[in-house]
Simulated assay, not measured.
Amino acid sequence: MQFELDITKRLRSGGEEFLLRSRFSTTDRALVLFGPSGSGKTLTLRAIAGMLKPDEGYIKLNGNVVFDSAKGINVPTRDRNVGYVFQDYALFPHQTVRQNVGFGLKPLFGKLHPADAERVEELIQVFGLASVASKKPVALSGGQQQRTALARALATSPNLLLLDEPFSALDQPLRLRMRDELASALENFNIPLIMVTHDSDEVESFAETIVVYRDGSVTDVHSAREISDSGLSLTETLRKQVALAYQ
């Protein structure tokens, strides 16, 4: 994956201003945005997806410019070909698991194309959702909701998967199991990802490149491989970064 981002966004709420200044690039397939809550990670992810328009700068995905303020380019979310898993999964409560998974494939009017319907059923099988395919989100466990959200994000065969703290709503035992399931799914689908987290264990599980945020800005960019090759502990390196954020 070739990824390059350099954006600025000013947000105002209750008379206070938050300045997001995000800049980094990578060719790795697994990128993690790491830092404390409120440091700008999710805002960056939303900008990548096209859900937040930066004030200035540019975003390039695999050499394709999806945003450039100077050139007046702002590719709509639907045309960026990215899958997004929200922190709370954002499943449609009135739809079944099967309908949620197929949402991005369904035309505005009419039924799913047979090939798309087959794609939905394949994903339901891959993520172990066959027994709950006709149920609505309220009847699902946390793990089942997460798998449904992930299947929905992958249904359109995106070029990039965006994950916003995908394990934060799960208790610890389930969180560990779902990490393994997600790692397996990503390997099977061979898809690049950008994940937001403030959990160093999740960084260790998924990251090739770690972008560290503090107070709305990128403070460091680390290569997990280089840290490991140097003999340093990735966990300890990140803990020091977090400690700096609270000084």
Score class of each variant (00 low, 15 high):
Asn64Met: 07
His113Pro: 00
Val75Ala: 12
Glu118Arg: 13
His94Val: 00
Phe109Asn: 11
Val66Glu: 07
Leu105Val: 10
Leu61Trp: 02
Lys71Ile: 00
Thr96Lys: 10
Glu118Gly: 00
Phe86Thr: 00
Val75Gly: 11
Thr96Trp: 06
Tyr58Asp: 00
Arg80Asn: 09
Val120Cys: 11
Gly72Gln: 06
Pro93Leu: 09
Pro76Met: 06
Arg119Lys: 14
Ala117Pro: 01
Gly110Val: 05
Asp79Leu: 12
Pro114Leu: 07
Val75Tyr: 08
Lys106Phe: 01
Ala117Lys: 11
Lys71Asn: 14
Phe86Gln: 05
Arg78Gly: 00
Ala115Asn: 05
Pro107Asp: 06
Gly83Leu: 10
Asp79Asn: 14
Asn74Leu: 08
Thr77Ile: 08
Glu118Lys: 14
Val82Gln: 05
Tyr58His: 12
Phe67Asn: 02
Val97Met: 03
Val82Arg: 01
Thr77His: 06
Lys106Met: 07
Asp88Gly: 01
Arg98Gln: 13
Pro107Asn: 01
Lys60Pro: 00
Leu108Met: 10
Pro76Asp: 13
Gly57Val: 01
Ser69Val: 02
Asp88Gln: 11
Phe67His: 14
Gly104Phe: 03
Ile73Cys: 04
Ser69Met: 05
Leu112Trp: 07
Leu108Val: 13
Tyr89Ile: 04
Asp79Pro: 01
Asp68Cys: 09
Gly72Leu: 11
Gly83Arg: 04
Asp88Met: 02
Gly110Pro: 01
Tyr89Arg: 06
Asp79Cys: 00
